[in-house]
Amino acid sequence: MRILAPAGFQARTAARKRIHWTPFLFLAPYLFLFVSLRLLPSLIGLTISFTNWSAVGVPQWVGLANYQALFIDPRFRDALTNTVIFTAMAVPALVGLGLAFALFLNQPHQGRGLGRVAVFTPYVIMPTVVGVLWTWILEKDFGLLNVLLGRQIPWLVSPSWAMLGLVLAAVWSMVGYNTVLFLAGLQDIPAELYEAARIDGAGAWRSFWSLTLPLLAPTAFLVLMLTIINTFQVFDLVYVMTSGGPGTSTLTMVQYVYTTAFQFFKFGYGSAVAMVMFVILVIVALIQTRAYRRGLESIY
């Protein structure tokens, strides 16, 4: 004991001396990549959006000109509208079905593991493959869906159906993710609460409305937020299935960023489109967080 105590003390003081630089050595490799490939690019992106930078020539500072041009750009308006429509169609389906699947698969029956695997499998297939697969399923004359329906719906080749076709593929491929998140949320609710509710005479519906739903609110909030962010940035499926067409009927924001920046090499303008997306996402996140807080206050 007499020997150990000073030794431990020494070790601790030594650690205190090193403390000034050891943390930074631990952080350095990550920070190097984070700063150079994430933080700086974000700031550069903001800066570029105020210039007329393209692949050739010297970039010039143009102030807000790119943003002003966006206002009267009909393709940008289409991209924004389409993205909002896609989000408005896909989000309720993804969140609603995800919740329904999770509630269903949370029932204590054998075989729910199989259901969970089936629901999640599409999520592990890469989105571009999902796009190729669904282009075939939605084919007008011989696609599986039309054959089953006994109709010839022009899913991806008509402007009025193309968006719905994309939504179908997106919901199929991503609903498993939400289901898994909801299932995790459901399993976090302590079983004793249901036991207590049952003893107090609450039926299945009553405990669902008064226990499950309120306690699932944090999960639902998170799932809603993630789903909005993900669907708002839809790109892979659009790129493969419609390339934004027919016409501009499925042109989305990210697709527009891609075309302006990497097909027409208007880096400044493309960055401005991306910045608008960022601002919209932040606003949505802020509104949701406020609504969520207010909702929580009204529950408790």
């Binding site: 952080l27 984070f34 150079s36 490939l37 994430r38 933080l39 700086l40 690019p41 974000s42 550069i44 992106g45 903001l46 570029i48 962010i229 940035q233 990210v254 960023v257 920046a261 990497f262 880096f267 493309g270 960055s271 991306a274 910045m275 997306m277 960022f278 996402l281 932040v282 996140a285």
Partner: peptide, 23 residues
């Protein structure tokens, strides 16, 4: 530092892609 790292969760990848390409 942690707050700065976390804040990047909200920045969509599309913003960084153009500068990344140039880098």
């Amino acid at each position: 530092l942690f707050a700065v790292i976390l804040s990047m969760l909200f920045v969509p990848l599309q913003i960084t892609v153009i500068p990344l390409f140039l880098i």
